[in-house]
């Protein structure tokens, strides 16, 4: 009893002293009961093993795929495609968002068309992209760029519209030109919203790249998962899903989210809700 409470005390103290350990515990802890429940379901033999493998089969399959089947190479290919597509979507989204955000006439006129193009979605365009551009990386990158473009575009536009006019007017009064207003006031002011749009866009772009790979690529994480289906390897598919989820969450938590909060601290001028 005393030994147990001593262990608990030391664990609690250890967590309190190391916030990152506490965060790790808080974020990974909930997965323990989930995996335990999964294990119990497997032991009950409701479905055959090939239908639902045991949790332990997933790390085993991961080790196998890394050593025997070049999983890292496939994942790198996927990361390359999603990064290239994401950056293209970011560039285009900021460019067009800034154009439409600074001109009320354009904003009014293009609103409908842009809403419509967003509603069509990247998957609707994919067959046409394939016919125009072929079964290659360019088509996949184009599809990802299409996904990322819209949240960035709307973010840029909304961000620019939310910048107080007095800031732009003071630059003009002090002798600055329209160029200064754009670079010194509007774009920095819109930056937090741009980054937010990029974050949302990349979240969906990450799924788009995997889907596009399933449909048209020969290499990549999506291809690996889709091929696993024809060998009836549920464990390989689960590895793919875990890798996809973990990679996205790590990118989001350690790159995009800090970037977002930094820009909000540095340039955020909006009156944030709540």
């Amino acid at each position: 009893m005393t030994a147990a409470s001593a262990v608990y005390y030391r664990l609690a103290m250890g967590l309190a002293e190391r916030p990152w350990l506490a965060a790790l515990f808080r974020n990974l802890g909930p997965f323990v009961p989930l995996i335990a429940a999964w294990q119990i379901v497997v032991l009950l033999r409701i479905w055959p093993r090939s239908f639902l493998p045991a949790p332990a089969a997933v790390p085993q399959a991961f080790a196998f795929l890394v050593t025997e089947s070049d999983l890292p190479g496939q994942v790198l290919r996927t990361i390359y495609r999603v990064t290239a597509g994401g950056l293209a979507g970011l560039g285009l989204g900021v460019l067009l968002g800034a154009m439409v955000g600074t001109s009320r006439g354009l904003h009014e006129a293009l609103r409908g068309l842009i809403d419509y193009l967003q509603a069509v979605g990247e998957i609707g365009w994919l067959p046409l992209f394939i016919i125009w551009s072929g079964f290659n990386d360019r088509t996949i990158i184009l599809t990802v760029a299409y996904t990322v473009f819209f949240p960035v575009f709307f973010g840029t536009m909304a961000g620019i519209l939310a910048v107080p006019r007095t800031l732009a007017n003071s630059v003009l009064t002090l002798g600055g030109g329209r160029r200064h207003v754009l670079w010194e006031v509007l774009l920095p002011g819109a930056l937090p919203a741009i980054i937010t749009g990029f974050r949302v866009g990349m979240g969906f772009g990450w799924r788009t790249v995997i889907l596009a790979e399933m449909l048209i690529a020969q290499l990549g994480l999506g291809v690996m998962m889709f091929e696993a289906r024809s060998f009836f390897r549920v464990d390989w598919i689960l590895v793919g899903m875990v890798v996809a989820g973990v990679l996205w969450l790590v990118t989001d938590r350690f790159v995009l989210l800090p970037l977002e909060s930094k820009t909000i601290q540095r340039w955020g001028v909006q009156v944030v809700e709540r």
Partner: peptide
């Protein structure tokens, strides 16, 4: 607080990433 990390993870992989598994199941 307990469910939040789970919700975040499954939200991140929701949708088309499940297609291969759905086809097998």
């Amino acid at each position: 607080a307990f469910f939040m990390p789970l919700a975040r993870f499954f939200q991140a992989v929701a949708g088309v990433i499940w297609i291969p598994l759905a086809v097998l199941w």
